[in-house]
Amino acid sequence: MTPVRVAFSKTGSLSFISHLDLMRTVSRILVRADIGIYYTEGFNPHPKLVFALPLSVGAESVSELFDIKVEGEADCGLILSRLRREAPPEMEIRDVYVPSRKFRDIAFAEYDIAIHHKDMPEDGAERVNTLTDSPLVLTKKTKSGEAECDIREYIAALTAELREGDLYIKTRLSADAEHYLNPEYVVLAVRRGLGIEEDDIAPGGDTYSIMRTRILDGAGEDFR
């Protein structure tokens, strides 16, 4: 039995499926790909499948990972081509390899966030760049309910620029098991900071998008 890691992207309409839906979709891809997948034991056997990080509904990613196990040796080239054959259009299988590290070594994730608002302030970018100078207290979901929390301790980097009236943010957020920050909180904090709450959700109205671009280890290197 060999552990195998799969890197993939999840974009477009696929970004709106829930984590459970993704599990189900990937399980079926694994079955169709016929790659000698290892099943869990028990009454209701299913492919053993672990995802690296959660991703909120509506967010896209070009840097997703899941781990599986296959019986015997792993032919990563074959697995890659089989998974590509079976994946839906908006799931791109980017890489398949035998991992040397565990998901618990993940420390950060990076995101590109774009925010559009009809009343975007002209100094929006400067204000976002100094946003972390003062406390950013939000109500955050935790394992034991909800708590007030200063999300600055989760933000490793946050920079913004304004292009054609839209705000483009690059941010690095902590993503280890104990301190995972959902990027939606950054969107919330920025909108609050700039006083641009979403009030027109119609097409062409106020909107935002989130793209996870990288997953990093504690040294700030790409996690593989």
């Binding site: 696929l14 709106f16 499926i17 839906d21 509904v57 509506g58 119609a202 097409p203 909107t207």
Partner: peptide, 18 residues
């Protein structure tokens, strides 16, 4: 996108299935 974020089970509407 903004509308899909406000409704239950948005995957009902996005299509793109295999």
């Amino acid at each position: 996108g903004s509308i899909l974020r406000t409704v239950s089970k948005p995957a009902r509407y996005t299509g793109g299935e295999r």
